[in-house]
């Protein structure tokens, strides 16, 4: 297959996906005679592939885009990936003074800073998300309620939904750029930039997880005279709690990655070291930092799994 000329990218993509166009067509039309369900499923798959092809065509997508265009790029690619096998145990930069921290210590300090940013951001985001998720859900609304109460509740609901959508529709990197241009590089800018979109996402998912829970217990508490908010707090929230913790852990992992990425706009996390080493083509240093980051994510994942297990399948109760 010839390299992707912008005029013929579609053919090369079809070739690369491995489905001849005529077979694609026959598959979908034949399924019309089959059961309705499998027909629908095939249509769905076919239309997803079609969407991919159309999008790829507009982007001028071609597998050739992954191939380095010339020899110097080839060299750099090779250098980068072969460095993965030889991460640096000492600085590649000869100008680093002897008094500086060894590279592993610098990396670990960068990781600790990354963790601190993620923890601070999550400490702001989780309470905010709990409040927003609560106000942005209708599970605790009293029934029946006065007209005024109804209007107020709906207004609060819509406001919170809007705030959550707005906060999460802007990526943390963009928030960071906005804050940095406004107040310069400060830790607070990084933390708020992380906390804003994370509150939005956490709040939305919290309210959805809560809404998915059964209403049997809530119905009972209502029947024995609990107030609406009380019913929500004791009859619905505890049911959703393990799922909320699990999701929060997942988001903490995301926060670690995001806080590392904030290094690319100058916040001093491990991302900053990665970027600086990368700019100087010190690929082995880059891989040292990447491996440290990978180790951190694996550790967080293991700890999270232990906590999840305890929450969902307790072997001991807290009191015993």
């Amino acid at each position: 297959m010839s390299a992707g000329m912008p005029t013929q990218p579609l053919c090369s993509i079809i070739g690369s996906v491995g489905i001849p166009a005529d077979k694609l067509f026959r598959g979908t039309s034949a399924s019309m005679n089959g059961s309705r369900y499998s027909g629908r499923k095939r249509w769905t798959v076919a239309s997803l592939i079609l969407v991919f092809l159309v999008c790829g065509w507009f982007l001028g997508l071609s597998p050739a885009g992954l191939i380095p265009p010339d020899a110097s790029h080839w060299d750099r690619t090779l250098a980068f990936f072969s460095a993965a096998l030889h991460p640096a145990f000492d600085y590649q930069d000869a100008n680093v003074p002897d008094s500086a921290d060894p590279i592993w210590l610098k990396g670990v300090k960068g990781l600790l800073a990354t963790i601190r940013y993620a923890l601070c951001a999550m400490s702001l985001a989780v309470p905010t998300a709990l409040v927003l998720g609560f106000l942005g859900s209708s599970a605790w609304w009293p029934e029946p309620r006065s007209r005024l109460a109804d209007v107020v509740l709906r207004a609060v609901y819509l406001c919170c939904r809007f705030v959550m959508s707005f906060a999460r529709s802007i990526h943390e990197l963009i928030w960071a750029l906005l804050f940095l241009s406004a107040i310069g590089i400060s830790p607070m800018a990084g933390i708020v930039a992380l906390a804003l979109p994370f509150s939005g996402t956490l709040g939305k998912v919290f309210s959805e997880l809560i809404d998915e829970e059964g209403r049997d217990a809530a119905e009972l508490f209502k029947a024995i005279g609990h107030r609406p908010v009380q019913t929500f707090l004791v009859g619905i929230f505890p049911l959703a709690f393990p799922n909320l913790v699990t999701y929060t852990f997942y988001r903490f992992e995301c926060a670690l990655r995001s806080s590392a990425v904030l290094g690319f706009v100058g916040i001093e996390t491990i991302g900053l070291y990665i970027q600086l080493s990368h700019e100087e083509f010190y690929y082995r240093e880059v891989w040292t930092y990447l491996y440290l980051l990978l180790a951190l994510i694996v550790v967080v994942d293991l700890v999270g799994a232990r906590i999840r297990e305890r929450l969902h399948h307790p072997t001991l109760t807290w009191q015993s």
Partner: peptide, 15 residues
């Protein structure tokens, strides 16, 4: 009034 009537529904309504 409801706080004076106990109910045990068929599904029990436990958390």
């Amino acid at each position: 009034l409801r706080s004076e009537i106990a109910t045990i529904p068929q599904h029990l309504g436990l958390v």
